[in-house]
Amino acid sequence: MAETGGFQLHNVFFAYDETTVLEEINLELPPGRFYGIVGPNGCGKTTLLDLLTGTQRVRRGSVLFQGRAIDTYRRRPLARQLALVPQEYAIDFAFTVEEVILMGRHPHLPRFGQPAAADWEIIDRVMAEIGIDHLAGRPVNELSGGEKQRVAVARALAQQTPTLLLDEATASLDIRYTLNILGALRQRVSRGEQTVIAVLHDLNLAAAFCDHLVFLNRGRIQAAGPTDQVLTPATIARVFGVECAVSHDSFSNAARVSFNLTAHKQPIPAAEARQ
C-alpha cells in the first residue's frame, strides 16, 4: 500500500482572490516518516497544511490522501486519520484541560455517546506523555501560551490518528518542552505508529528530528528530500537568503546549521522585506 498511502500532491495551485499563495506544488509524502516543512514567514506553509487537512480546497491540481482526493472525505472519518495542532488558538471559555483533550476523542464517539473507560485511559496516557497531568483540572483559558500549546498537542495525540500535522506547534515553547514534544513524536514515528508532518521554524530542530525536509519559498517548493541530502548551505541561502554552514554535530548526533552573523548586519531591502 506504500504507493497509495500518505499524501500525493499534483501540480497544486492555490490563491486567495488575486494573491497566489502556492503554485506548482508536486509532492509525495509516503507514510512512516517525520517530515519537516520549512521556509521563511508568509511562504505558504500554513496554507499547505490547510490543503492537507481539507480546510481549504486547491484552485487547480489535486491533493490525494491514501489514494483519494482529500475533498471527497467526510470530516468525521478523516478526523480518525488526520490530526492537526494549529499554530495557536484563542479560547475564551473555561473548559478544563481534561475536557479539551477529551474533545480529541470526538471523531471516535457516537453523537450522544459518553466517553468509555478506554477513552479516559487514552487521555491519561497522552497527558502523562506530554507531561501535563498536573494541569488536568485547570481552566484552559488561564494557561500560559506554552501550556496551551502542550494541551493542543495532547488533544491531537488523543485523536489517535495515523497521521499528525503540526503548524509551528513548538513556536511558543521553551527548549525543554520543545525537545520533550518533538522527542515524543520522533519516538512514535520510529516505532512506526505515526507519520508526522510538521511546519518548523528552527532549522536545527528540523535537522535533528526530521527524516525528510520540504523547503518552501514564495509559494513554490525549492527542495524536498531526505534531510542529509537537501539541508545544504546552497538550499538555505536560496530559500532564506542567509549565509550559513552545515556541519555534523557530534554532541546531538545531528546536522547543525550555523549562520554567518556579520553578513546580515545591513538592513533587509524593502522589496524583499515585503515578501
Binding site: D50, T53, G54, T55, R75, R76, P77, L78, A79, R80, L82, A83, L84, P86, Y89, A90, I91, D92, F93, F95, V100, M103, G104, H106, P107, A152, R155, A156, Q159, L165
Partner: peptide, 12 residues
C-alpha cells in the same frame, strides 16, 4: 470554541 481549523480537523 477551539477555532475553525481545529474543529475541522476534529471532524466537525
Amino acid at each position: 470554541s477551539l477555532g475553525g481549523r481545529t474543529s475541522d480537523a476534529l471532524g466537525v
